[in-house]
Design a protein around this nucleic acid. Structure first.
Lengths: 228, 228
DNA sequence: CGGGATCCGTAAAGATACTG
DNA sequence: CAGTATCTTTACGGATCCCG
């Protein structure tokens, strides 16, 4: 953004100068969702160049939105002002879910981004209190992106692997990436995908039957699409 | 912004692609506030080039946020999707009021922008039901920007002139532009500005005494500043 | 592997001027 | 009033490389 800025005293313009530069809001979504490390943030915005990510983080620090800790491996943490951006990110996401046509963006699928988001939002409450392994298989993808394992540990922490961790698998989920993304976004349900033959579950019955509940959806999945 | 876009299926990214390009949110503030004509919008974003304004309006039309009416002199009107951006603009403005340091932006004052906003938000309820003329005088400004008249008509409509309309003046407000802008933004009150000697009211007593109430402030003036 | 910096070609924005 | 046209400046994207 030009440093010359909007030169307006209105609070909307003052905030937009900081927030409405390229990639900034998407980056803030990652920070609000809890990512703190440089490479963790990179996973959330894989198409952003590291140079620009570094620059944006410095700008956010200068604006008082994040602090870059010297210790602890250089984590980027939101300040109070940064945490207070959650309603802004939510309002933007809610509007997007409501009004932006999904089809074009569903041509930009990314299994890593999707699995990462699923890992982050997975609800461990309906999952048994023992190690539970769920393997996702996207048959149409190249081998390097085809298989993903979500592992719920007894302590309720969730891990994501894309190489076989070697554990017994409790549930196999075979699905195409677009269908799984649509379910994640709330545009489709597990049940309808199964009855359409787009999703196939093999493994422990109680896990399969409760998938819609433990599968944490996008934070915006509740909002119905209104765009024509 | 680049047509290549963020390439993410997340609603935040989908919305940010449309909303978070340079000037777009500031322009949306004007549209949400009710401006519809090209040159009316220009007054609200005076530092935006007409070429870019035209381009952004086309983009907003393509995104389904405004419609450009062929009749009625080419007004730009918000669609349902556009009106639904009000919470987004409000969230951004609220955050800006709360967390962005005001001082730097108070070096970019603009009397026309301020008077235009005051005209738009003036509360006619406390004003007598007869034509009322209030003259603002900014002594430090060059003659072409020094004098402004707000005229409340008996039908409660409000006009703004910057050439003398010739009516009798009911209240003279002599003030420096920074003080008046601070009052408008809620950073100061009429009473404290008067006692500081920064604001001088001459004219009908009841109008002077009720200035804080009929002077519609910025929609964000209620929110206290928290930035350190 | 985390955390960047550098260089260069392209794409967007700013500043003016001008027109139907 | 409602925009275009043109030229210059700035920002961004992508690749590569560096360092602890």
């Amino acid at each position: 953004m030009t440093n010359a800025s909007y030169r307006q005293f209105c609070p909307v313009a003052m905030a937009a100068e900081i927030l409405c530069t390229r990639w900034t809001v998407v980056l803030l979504r990652e920070l609000v969702a809890g990512s703190t490390r440089f490479n963790e943030l990179r996973r959330g915005v894989p198409r952003m160049s590291p140079a620009l990510l570094s620059k944006r983080l410095r700008e956010l620090e200068e604006a008082g939105i994040v602090v870059h800790e010297e210790r602890e491996g250089g984590a980027y943490r939101l300040t109070a002002a940064g945490r207070d951006l959650q309603p802004v990110v939510e309002a933007i996401g809610l509007w997007g879910q409501k009004w932006v046509e999904a089809d074009p963006s569903l041509e930009n699928l990314d299994p890593e981004l999707l699995m990462w988001d699923m890992r982050r939002n997975l609800d461990t409450d309906p999952v048994p209190a023992m190690r539970t392994v769920i393997e996702f298989i996207y048959p149409e993808l190249p081998p390097s992106q085809r298989n993903w394992w979500l592992i719920v540990e007894p302590d309720q922490s969730v891990d994501l692997c894309h190489i076989d961790p070697g554990f017994d698998v409790d549930l196999y989920v075979t699905v195409d990436l677009r269908t799984m993304t649509e379910i994640w976004m709330g545009l489709r349900t597990v049940a309808t995908a199964i009855s359409d033959g787009a999703l196939c579950l093999v493994g422990r019955t109680e896990l399969a039957n409760t998938m819609q509940s433990w599968l944490g959806l996008s934070p915006f999945a509740q909002q119905k699409k209104l765009a024509t």
